[in-house]
């Protein structure tokens, strides 16, 4: 086995492990409330593991919601920039690059603190904090795609712009764009947890790992802190692993084809 295929296997293994872990976490978080005795979990005397799992519902579903929103925003940004012509493209992408360099994670607690919170506002702020990164990645992928020789071959075959878009561009763009979008999920979870840690995140009826960690740290309750912190780190690792895997699969191209250069 050559080193390259060995490397491939290891990377694929990591993505699969991440996906399996995420599925297990989602399942555990869903069934956790059924395992409690039915009474509202009083934080002082309930089982810390069950509490953390129950909190996971809030954290994970909010990360999914705001992550998808952020991915959509970022992808829309990149597609719009690419479609609007060189000048606008340069401006839009320069703005994305500048924004991606700022500590946008502060945006969520700052906005929630100033404007009083609320789920929709928080979701929007988290999405905005993830969007520039997604836009940058997606734009790079789109630019690479537009430079590919098979698009010129398609023009030589007399295909119209619309046919090239339908038959060649969209089928080849889906994978890299989805992969770029996947990067928004771990970012959304991290930003939400950070805001909740400061007490400026998800509103109180919705439990969240960040909020539990923050509360436990303030109360000095190590027993409540450890499960929540562990589950949060595991989820972040799993989401990152899946996103990395998606990006590397997109770079490989469909059907084992090289997405960048056939003879690289």
């Amino acid at each position: 086995m050559n080193p390259r295929s060995d490397h491939h296997t290891r990377r694929h293994g990591r993505g699969a492990a991440g996906l399996a872990l995420l599925a297990a976490l989602a399942l555990a978080c869903t069934v956790a409330p059924l395992l409690s005795d039915g009474a509202a979990p009083l934080r002082a005397d309930s089982d810390p593991v069950l509490t953390a799992l129950t909190d996971g519902r809030g954290s994970l579903s909010f990360a999914l919601l705001s992550g998808l929103l952020g991915a959509g925003l970022g992808l829309g940004w990149a597609v719009l920039a690419t479609a609007l012509g060189e000048r606008t493209e340069r401006r839009l992408m320069a703005a994305a690059a500048r924004l991606a360099g700022l500590p946008l994670a502060l945006l969520a607690p700052l906005g929630a603190g100033l404007m009083g919170g609320g789920l929709p506002l928080l979701a929007l702020l988290v999405a905005v904090s993830a969007a520039p990164l997604v836009a940058g990645l997606a734009h790079g992928e789109l630019r690479d795609l537009l430079r590919r020789e098979f698009l010129i071959a398609a023009r030589a075959a007399g295909l119209s712009q619309g046919a090239i878009l339908r038959h060649h561009l969209i089928p080849n763009a889906v994978r890299p764009l989805l992969a770029a979008g996947a990067v928004a999920l771990p970012r959304a979870l991290a930003v939400e947890s950070f805001a909740s840690l400061l007490g400026l995140g998800l509103p109180s009826p919705v439990g969240s790992w960040g909020a539990t960690i923050g509360l436990a740290a303030r109360l000095g309750d190590g027993l409540a802190l450890i499960p929540a912190a562990l589950l949060l780190s595991l989820s972040l690792w799993a989401l990152h692993a899946v996103a990395d895997e998606a990006l590397s699969l997109a770079a490989e191209g469909p059907h084992g084809g090289a997405a960048t250069d056939a003879r690289a």
Partner: peptide, 11 residues
């Protein structure tokens, strides 16, 4: 084309 493989749509 100079690189025939790259001139084929991988998808």
């Amino acid at each position: 084309f100079p690189d025939p493989a790259a001139a084929l749509d991988p998808a």
